[in-house]
């Protein structure tokens, strides 16, 4: 349910743009595993409080991709994070993935989250 706090940041950011936003894409990085239903509900509720601000928000998902800094191997989440507690921890704080999984190539925890970490917004500008 902390999706609410994240949804608030999205609405606030869209409102803060100099040019009025009518359309935006919200990217969910799969690592954070944001609950789409709760998030969308929060967005709806938050927009109800706005007078004439009604942007079309489309949600897209992005797979998580990691790259090992020690050996260069690229890997994903398919193996790892089975434990429900660890999953929840990463849901709240995606960086914690580095505490729970290792590079399948060399065993290092020193890897980069290249894609699919958490929340971001994409807006088309002319």
């Amino acid at each position: 349910m902390h999706e609410w706090a994240l949804a608030e940041s999205v609405i606030k950011t869209l409102k803060n743009q100099k040019k009025r936003v009518s359309k935006a894409e919200v990217i969910f990085g799969k690592l954070q595993d944001i609950d789409r239903e709760i998030f969308s509900f929060a967005i709806e509720e938050l927009l109800k409080q706005e007078k004439d601000f009604r942007p079309v928000i489309k949600i897209c998902e992005e797979e998580a991709v990691f790259e090992c800094i020690s050996c260069g191997m690229e890997f994903d989440l398919k193996k790892g994070l089975e434990d429900a507690g660890e999953k929840e921890n990463v849901h709240f704080l995606p960086e914690m993935v580095k505490v729970f999984i290792k590079c399948p190539g060399c065993g290092s925890r020193d890897f980069e989250i290249k894609k699919g970490r958490g929340l971001s917004i994409r807006i088309k500008e002319k």
Partner: peptide
């Protein structure tokens, strides 16, 4: 430490900065 299941948190500076931002957000 609530989120680390008692494991060591070894992160690079940029990751820590990002995680700090996350917690201030939520």
């Amino acid at each position: 430490s609530y989120f680390s299941s008692n494991k060591a948190i070894a992160l690079r500076g940029a990751s820590i900065a990002c995680a700090i931002k996350e917690l201030f957000t939520v």
